[in-house]
Amino acid sequence: TETVELHKLKLAELKQECLARGLETKGIKQDLIHRLQAYLEEHAE
């Protein structure tokens, strides 16, 4: 999932992505995007 794609997701979809990775789901859309980006960078293959 790339940065551009995360911005296209709806808030509910971002929350699902966070939940699937065991991440916090509180906060505004930008918080969730930032959290997912950090996770994806950390776990990049």
Rank of each mutant, 00 (worst) to 15 (best):
L40K: 04
I33E: 09
K10A: 12
H43F: 04
L11N: 03
K8N: 15
A20H: 02
L36C: 03
Q30C: 08
H43G: 10
H34S: 12
K29T: 03
I33W: 02
I28W: 07
V4S: 15
G27H: 01
L6A: 05
E24D: 15
R35L: 02
L40R: 14
L40S: 14
I28H: 14
H34R: 14
A12F: 07
L6M: 07
L11M: 13
Q30K: 15
E13L: 03
I33T: 07
G27F: 01
V4I: 15
H34M: 15
A20S: 10
T1P: 07
L9H: 03
L32K: 02
L32F: 00
H43A: 10
H34K: 05
L23H: 01
Q30L: 11
L23C: 00
R35D: 03
E2C: 09
A20V: 11
Q16V: 06
Q37C: 06
E41L: 13
G27S: 02
T3Q: 13
E41D: 13
L11F: 13
V4T: 14
K15T: 07
L19A: 14
E5N: 11
K15D: 01
C18F: 05
I33V: 11
T1A: 10
L14P: 00
I28A: 15
E42N: 11
L19C: 06
T25H: 05
H7Q: 14
L11R: 05
E42A: 11
Q30M: 11
L14G: 00
T1N: 10
K26Q: 12
V4E: 13
A20N: 13
K15E: 10
A38L: 10
R21Q: 04
L36H: 02
K10T: 15
E24P: 11
L11D: 08
L9G: 01
Q16G: 06
L32G: 02
L9N: 01
L32C: 04
L32Q: 02
K26D: 15
D31C: 06
T1F: 10
A12K: 08
T1G: 12
L32R: 01
L14F: 01
K10N: 13
G27D: 01
C18P: 00
R21K: 10
G22Q: 03
A20G: 05
A44P: 14
H34D: 11
E13Y: 04
E2A: 11
Q16R: 10
E5A: 10
E24A: 12
T3P: 12
E24C: 09
T1E: 14
K8F: 03
Q30H: 04
L14M: 01
K8H: 08
R35F: 02
L19W: 08
K15L: 04
E42R: 12
H7Y: 05
L36Q: 03
A38D: 07
K15A: 05
D31T: 06
L19E: 14
C18R: 00
A12E: 14
Y39H: 13
L23I: 08
E5D: 13
L19F: 11
I33H: 03
D31A: 07
I28Q: 15
T3K: 15
T25K: 01
E42H: 15
K26G: 14
E5V: 07
E2K: 14
E2Y: 15
L19R: 09
L11H: 05
K15N: 01
K15P: 00
D31R: 02
T1Y: 04
K29V: 03
K8S: 12
G22T: 00
E17V: 02
E17N: 03
Q37S: 12
T3V: 08
E41R: 14
